[in-house]
Simulated assay, not measured.
Amino acid sequence: MSASALRAAYEIRVVAGRLRRRLKETYDNEELTPTQTSVLSRLSKDGPASTSDLAAAERVRPQSMAATLGVLDERGLIQRRPDPDDGRRQLISLSESGTAYVDDKRRAGEGWLAKSLESGFTEEERQTIIEAMALLDRLAHT
């Protein structure tokens, strides 16, 4: 393994973690847990899912996911409807409030990023970041 590959792997992991934490600091999480926030994000991105599908995706027990969904339901962030293919299952999706919540949080994070990039980096540096993101996206798809 080359030294540059090892260093790049380390740097990507460290910087991605720092950015993720910093983005979470940019908005009020309304006292949601990381799992609750992740479920909302997943539903926004992937669409409706069953409790067991969400539990598998989040790598938690179905009972834990049921508790997570209970809180989100109480806050009006999700809605449940029968699965048209299997009446014994329910599909969970974002409610209008849940969609607005996720959209607001994304805008807050992107706003912080854009403002920080505008004030702290030159145009040339921003172009370098854009090029690096294309490379990281390629990495994510390997």
Rank of each mutant, 00 (worst) to 15 (best):
S44Q: 13
L32G: 04
V102Q: 02
S95Q: 02
S116M: 06
P84C: 06
T35C: 06
A9H: 03
A8Y: 01
A140K: 12
E58W: 04
R61Y: 07
M133E: 14
K45F: 09
A134H: 13
A5S: 04
Y10N: 10
R138F: 07
S95P: 03
A57I: 01
S4C: 08
V60L: 04
M1Y: 00
I12P: 09
T33A: 04
A66L: 08
R126G: 00
S119A: 07
D137R: 15
G70E: 02
E124D: 11
D46H: 08
S38A: 14
R138T: 10
L19R: 05
G120Q: 01
T35G: 05
P48M: 04
S44P: 10
A67P: 11
S44F: 11
R126E: 00
T33W: 04
L91E: 07
L77N: 05
H141V: 09
V102C: 04
L69K: 01
T37I: 12
M65W: 00
R13G: 05
Q63F: 07
P34R: 00
L43G: 02
G47R: 03
F121K: 09
S97V: 07
S44N: 14
Q127Y: 09
K24T: 13
H141W: 08
E30A: 06
T37R: 15
T26V: 06
F121H: 09
K45L: 09
T26L: 03
R7P: 04
E110L: 12
L6C: 04
I130D: 15
L113R: 15
S4G: 08
L135P: 05
L135I: 13
I130M: 14
S38Y: 12
D137G: 14
L77A: 03
Q127L: 11
L135Y: 13
E125I: 00
S50M: 02
S64F: 04
D73M: 02
V71I: 11
D46G: 11
Y101I: 06
A67D: 15
L19P: 08
R20M: 11
A67Y: 11
P82Q: 10
S4M: 06
E74W: 03
F121T: 12
Y27H: 15
R126A: 01
R80Y: 00
S52K: 14
A56G: 12
A3H: 05
L117H: 13
S97T: 10
G47F: 01
Q79E: 10
P84D: 08
A55C: 03
I92Q: 03
G76S: 02
R89D: 07
A66D: 11
D86A: 01
L139N: 12
P48G: 05
E118D: 15
L117V: 12
A132Q: 14
R22S: 14
R80L: 00
E25R: 03
V39K: 01
E125C: 03
L43C: 08
R75A: 02
P82L: 08
Y10S: 08
A132R: 14
Q90K: 07
Q127E: 14
K45P: 10
D85G: 11
E11V: 05
P34F: 01
D83T: 14
R81Y: 04
Q90E: 13
T122I: 02
R126H: 00
L72R: 01
S44E: 12
G70Q: 03
S41P: 14
H141Y: 10
P62N: 02
T128L: 07
E123N: 03
A67C: 13
R7N: 05
L23Y: 06
G111N: 08
E131Q: 13
T37K: 15
T26K: 01
